[in-house]
Computed example of a mutant assay.
Amino acid sequence: MEKITIILVHGAWSDGAHWKYVISKLVKAGYKVRAAQNPLTSLTDDVQKTTDLINLQEGKVLLVGYSYGGAVITNAGNNDKVAGLVYVAAYVDAC
């Protein structure tokens, strides 16, 4: 069975690089992981960018949103490829 692709969506004052420690752990566990690089110009633009990333993936995806990213995944989650949504709102020390 093919593992789901995990798409990580950053908050309003960050970018995809903020997920680097999480990405390395997920990749080591065998997952395909992508981090959205949303432009933060508007919610509409960010949802479209995330939707474009979803559509590029083969198979199902799991959207993970941090802070403002939760609003993005809520709107982008209406896609047949989306298997689920995860909302992250807590500080995680990955060191």
Rank of each mutant, 00 (worst) to 15 (best):
D93Q: 10
G69Y: 01
S24T: 15
T44Q: 14
V47L: 08
G59S: 11
Y21I: 00
V72D: 02
L85D: 02
A12I: 14
D46F: 04
H18T: 11
I7T: 08
Y21W: 09
Y91S: 12
W19V: 10
W19R: 11
L8Y: 04
V92D: 09
G59E: 13
K81P: 00
V47Q: 06
W19M: 08
H18L: 08
W13N: 03
A90F: 11
S24Q: 15
W19E: 03
S42T: 10
A94N: 14
V82G: 00
V88G: 02
Y87D: 00
N55Y: 00
V92S: 12
Y66C: 03
S67Q: 00
I4L: 13
D93C: 08
A12D: 02
G69L: 03
Y31I: 06
Y66I: 02
T41G: 01
Y31V: 11
S14D: 12
K81Q: 13
I54T: 10
D45C: 01
V22M: 13
I7Q: 05
D15P: 01
A71M: 15
K28G: 09
I7Y: 12
V64P: 02
E2G: 06
V9H: 05
I23E: 10
K3V: 07
Q57Y: 09
G11W: 02
I4N: 05
A35F: 07
V47M: 04
T44E: 15
A94F: 15
K60H: 05
K32M: 01
L26T: 03
T5R: 13
A17R: 14
D46K: 11
E58Y: 04
E58H: 08
V64F: 10
G59D: 06
G70M: 10
K60I: 01
V22N: 09
V88S: 03
L40Y: 04
T44N: 13
A94E: 12
K20E: 12
D45H: 09
V82S: 01
V64W: 07
A83Y: 06
K81N: 08
K3Y: 06
A89V: 08
Q48R: 14
L56Y: 02
D45G: 00
V72S: 06
G77W: 07
L26P: 03
V33P: 11
E2K: 14
Q48A: 13
V47R: 03
A12G: 08
V27F: 06
T5S: 14
L43P: 05
V72H: 06
G16K: 07
V9Q: 07
G70C: 11
G70E: 02
D93A: 13
K25E: 14
V47N: 01
K20W: 14
V72G: 02
A94T: 14
Q48M: 10
N55C: 06
Y31N: 05
K28I: 07
G70D: 04
K81A: 12
Y91L: 13
T74I: 11
K49E: 06
Y91C: 00
V72M: 02
G77K: 06
I4D: 02
D45L: 00
D15R: 10
D15T: 14
H10Q: 10
D80Y: 05
H18M: 12
V47F: 08
V22S: 05
Y87S: 03
R34P: 00
G30R: 08
L62V: 13
L53N: 04
A94K: 07
G16Y: 10
V47W: 09
